[in-house]
């Protein structure tokens, strides 16, 4: 029900970071350039999906063309669509906002099989990329971020700089961080402060 009627709507979504993002290079930029690249991913469709029916999951995988991860703290997906394990029988589906994902699923499955909760506007998503990305995560969270330990398609639900965060490892040094929207400005400020010593670029 919360999906925007794009045909009628001339309004654009305004992210929680819209007022604070300044683009450019900042901090300790050396001759080799920035060690970190930070950008906001917006607008995204973020759906929480609950189901305990394995057949439904298989059908959902076929519908979405992405397998559902069953291992704790892992993700599956492709460049477009990601599915993150959130807890027993609970996943987060993330993709750039371009279609009506919720409608797509609701049209195929009834509400007693699949429970969908739209969190697209409730999360701010920041992508952290670069050779110092893991060092930033190490500053803010006690998870083992070592590249042999937190590998591509791992996700973590942790406190990052004392804020509840979900971190999806998209590639060796590429991470998507999901933060509650209300804390997005605070998080952005802390992230910049932590990144300054490495030199960073906001894209």
């Amino acid at each position: 029900m919360t999906e925007v009627n794009t045909s009628k709507n001339s309004l654009r979504r305004r992210s929680g970071l819209a007022h604070v993002i300044n683009y450019g290079q900042f901090g300790n930029i050396t001759l080799s350039g920035p060690s970190l690249f930070i950008c906001e991913r917006h607008p995204l469709t973020i759906l929480q999906l609950d189901t305990n029916k394995s057949k439904t999951l298989t059908d959902l995988s076929n519908l979405l063309n992405v397998e559902f991860p069953h291992t704790t703290n892992t993700c599956k997906g492709n460049d477009e669509r990601r599915i993150l394990w959130l807890g027993p029988n609970r996943w987060l589906i993330v993709e750039p906002e371009h279609g009506c994902l919720q409608t797509l699923i609701k049209n195929e499955f009834n509400s007693s099989e699949v429970f969908l909760t739209d969190l697209s506007h409730g999360r701010s998503t920041v992508r952290l990329r670069g050779r110092k990305a893991r060092d930033i995560l190490m500053k803010g969270s006690g998870v083992d971020w070592h590249l042999n330990s937190f590998v591509t398609d791992n996700c973590a639900h942790t406190k990052l700089f004392d804020l509840a965060a979900t971190v999806d490892c998209r590639d060796i040094d590429v991470f998507d961080i999901y933060i509650a929207r209300g804390f997005a400005e605070d998080f952005w400020e802390i992230l910049q402060d932590a990144a300054a010593e490495f030199g960073y670029q906001v894209d």
Binding site: F115, T117, D118, L119, S120, H121, R181, G182
Partner: peptide, 11 residues
């Protein structure tokens, strides 16, 4: 029953 916080989702 499934419960989820949507405080941040809605203005």
């Amino acid at each position: 029953v499934k419960v989820t916080s949507v405080t941040e989702q809605w203005a």
